[in-house]
């Protein structure tokens, strides 16, 4: 178990370094950071000054090394627009996005696991078909369009819930639904497939044969084993949600990392964009690492391979 965890941790670190390298190169090659920072009315000399001042004139590997050594000490540079350290601003905004992601995942799990179990209990019946249809429709609905409809119906027509800001937990309901429903089809399908497999196994037949009540068989014996793949899928989906929250945060004016990313793009805040992409990637890597370790803990077969 320890060996597996260490191996997996080393892999996660390697992925993180590669992601930072790729992001860094991609951003430098996509545009001229000096011109972006100097603004539209800048002269050639202004741009040249900015380029020298921030070291954009040096070769890429040198720039990356300088950036990476600072980043390791927690210094991700300063935001040219907000005139404050990037790390500080990201840390301020992160809780909103994390709350949003956690609520969205919770919503997705609460909706999709029961649906998946129901579908698996009666495969190829009306129940099963309905659940699959809900999943298909969910997958096809563009999240930003769904968010706008939620605003129109629950915020404007029914006046039930607030539609902008992040002051109370009520503010998180609509954004969480808008962000979370996109993950429901995948989780539902995996739950259904897992349940179908487990329900056909011998120990379930034994449990039934010794006269246990169906709910006990279903929840205590079957669901526990069927749910293992859902753990790692949830981690992956949460990672995707944090990346995709930019659209939802923008619509609901939630001041999280996503909205910060959008604003930084509008302000050509270079260091900020870089730090945000890396932060989100970091979340994803950490989540998948935790999921893998948890999986190995729950299912000893994984450790051996």
């Amino acid at each position: 178990m320890l060996f597996y965890t260490l191996k997996r941790f080393g892999m996660a670190l390697l992925v993180l370094v590669t992601v930072s390298l790729v992001t860094f190169t991609l951003l430098r090659l996509s545009g001229d950071p000096a011109a972006a920072m100097a603004g539209e009315s800048a002269t050639e000399e202004d741009i040249e000054y900015v380029r020298k001042h921030f070291g954009f004139d040096k070769p890429l590997p040198v720039q990356y090394w300088a950036w990476a050594t600072k980043a390791l000490q927690g210094d991700f540079g300063r935001s040219v627009y907000l005139k404050r350290p990037v790390a500080q601003i990201v840390a301020e905004k992160a809780p909103v996005t994390m709350t949003l992601g956690a609520c969205a995942l919770l919503f997705a799990l609460v909706l999709s696991i029961p649906l998946g179990v129901l579908a698996a209990m009666r495969p190829n019946t009306i129940t099963d078909r309905t659940a699959l249809t809900i999943a298909l429709i969910g997958q096809a609905f563009p999240s930003f369009f769904f968010a706008l409809i939620l605003i129109l119906v629950f915020g404007v027509k029914l006046r039930m819930l607030p539609i902008t800001g992040s002051d109370t937990w009520l503010h998180f309901i609509l954004p969480s639904i808008a962000l979370g429903y996109y993950a429901t089809p995948a989780i539902m399908r995996v739950t259904r497939a897992g349940m179908l497999e487990v329900l056909g196994s011998d120990y379930i037949r034994t449990a039934k044969a010794k006269g246990l009540r169906p709910p006990v068989v279903l929840f205590k014996h079957a669901l526990r084993n069927a749910i293992i793949p859902v753990v790692s899928l949830s981690a992956v989906q949460l990672g995707f949600m944090l990346g995709g929250s930019i659209v939802i945060e923008q619509i609901f004016s939630l001041h999280g990392i996503g909205r910060l990313a959008w604003q930084s793009i509008q302000r050509s805040d270079f260091e900020m964009m870089q730090a945000i992409v890396l932060t989100v990637a970091c979340f994803y890597i950490a989540l998948t690492f935790l999921a893998d370790v948890l999986n190995a803990f729950l299912d000893p077969k994984i450790r051996v391979h």
Partner: peptide
């Protein structure tokens, strides 16, 4: 590990 929408937006 690279967030698609974010990276696409920035680039």
């Amino acid at each position: 590990a690279m967030p698609v929408i974010l990276v696409a937006l920035v680039v």
